[in-house]
């Protein structure tokens, strides 16, 4: 037991002494939360609109004013011909143009480069311009869970999924491989300490670190971003713990395969980071991908965690509704851990 504690202390010192890495580890969540919470949005605002008209009539005047008064659009320029407007858009001086034609018609000319935004801009512009009173329509829309459509609601669980995976898997694998590379692993193996204990002792500080980061993310999301924690806190933490264990087993597995830090880094980056960002549904919805990729995405652990967290944290459902995700994660943990321990070398080579 004394040896175990000495080990944990040693490992903790390694982490604490490397100030730059520490700074990144704790700075990363903060910056990510701020970026995703505030900066990464697809809100429609400040759409630069050019007006194309040969002469200002009361009719055009009214339409232009409507646009200008809305919070979404800013009128930047008035030009005479649609060609001029097109040039403005091409030069990135305008995103959209409102064209008044001779025969009292109106046309929205929009930069279609980004199909999503183009779609949204035109929808907003139409609503702003059209005289139809929407209150008369029998259609009533309601946005559940996230009525203000804050992107933070979507991203907070995703950031948790990414960072926990990164810290647990990447950091543990690198720290084990570093001992191999520096030759200290030989001494540890020859010492009377059981190899399994070496591994567990290595994982403990990262487990604590992961929890620290988890808590700070939760606090930030609640008090800085104003994302409510709607579900039971106990289950959020319990599912997170399972996920952390999953990530640790993955890190252990990588450390068995990799012989040098460089390989461990590249493997973590390619096996973990890329799929996590791309296939976990963090930024790009999995449902929109082709079938083959959806199958591939089914193998990415953070996918299940992120989905479970979105449900637990944001939608506030009970543990029963995430049983599927939890079961998959538990299964993955058992399999990965079993392989990692079986493959763990008590000898060199």
């Amino acid at each position: 037991m004394k040896q175990f504690i000495a080990f944990v202390i040693k490992e903790t010192k390694h982490i604490l002494r490397d100030k730059r890495t520490m700074l990144i580890l704790f700075g990363m969540p903060v910056v990510m939360m701020l970026l995703f919470g505030f900066a990464i949005t697809t809100d429609v605002k400040n759409v630069r609109t050019a007006v194309v008209t040969s002469e200002m009539s009361p009719r055009t005047q009214q339409a232009v004013e409507r646009l200008a008064q809305s919070e979404y659009f800013i009128i930047t320029q008035t030009v005479n011909t649609p060609q001029e407007a097109e040039r403005l858009i091409r030069r990135q001086k305008a995103d959209m143009a409102l064209v008044f034609t001779q025969n009292r018609g109106m046309q929205i000319m929009v930069d279609g480069s980004d199909p999503n935004m183009a779609q949204q801009w035109t929808t907003y512009a139409r609503q702003t311009l059209s005289p139809v009173n929407f209150h008369l329509s029998p259609v009533n829309s309601r946005l559940l869970y996230n009525p203000q459509m804050k992107s933070a609601y979507n991203f907070v669980p995703a950031i948790m999924g990414m960072l926990l995976m990164l810290i647990c898997a990447m950091m543990t694998s690198i720290s084990i491989v570093r001992e191999k590379e520096k030759g200290t692993m030989e001494v540890l193996l020859v010492s009377p300490v059981r190899p399994l204990m070496v591994i567990i002792a290595k994982a403990v500080p990262y487990l604590v670190l992961a929890f620290g980061i988890l808590i700070s993310i939760l606090l930030m999301s609640r008090y800085v971003l104003g994302v409510p924690i709607a579900g039971p806190l106990f289950w959020i933490l319990a599912v997170s713990t399972l996920y952390i264990l999953l990530a640790l087993s993955l890190g252990l597995l990588i450390s068995n395969v990799a012989q040098t830090q460089l390989v461990a880094l590249l493997m973590s980056a390619m096996v973990l980071l890329m799929p996590v960002v791309m296939l976990s549904g963090m930024i790009f919805p999995v449902e929109s991908m082709p079938q083959v990729l959806q199958w591939l995405a089914a193998l990415v652990p953070p996918r299940y965690y992120i989905q479970a967290m979105r449900k637990l944290m944001i939608m506030g459902v009970g543990i029963r509704e995430v049983a599927h995700e939890v079961a998959v994660m538990a299964g993955m943990t058992v399999v990965l851990l079993a392989i990692a321990l079986k493959k763990f070398n008590v000898r060199l080579e």
Partner: peptide, 18 residues
């Protein structure tokens, strides 16, 4: 065997940050 032996490898480099 491991309980009874001490070993100092040739490229033993200790923990640099301790």
């Amino acid at each position: 065997v491991r309980r009874r032996t001490g070993y100092m490898p040739g490229k033993f480099s200790l923990y640099q940050d301790l």
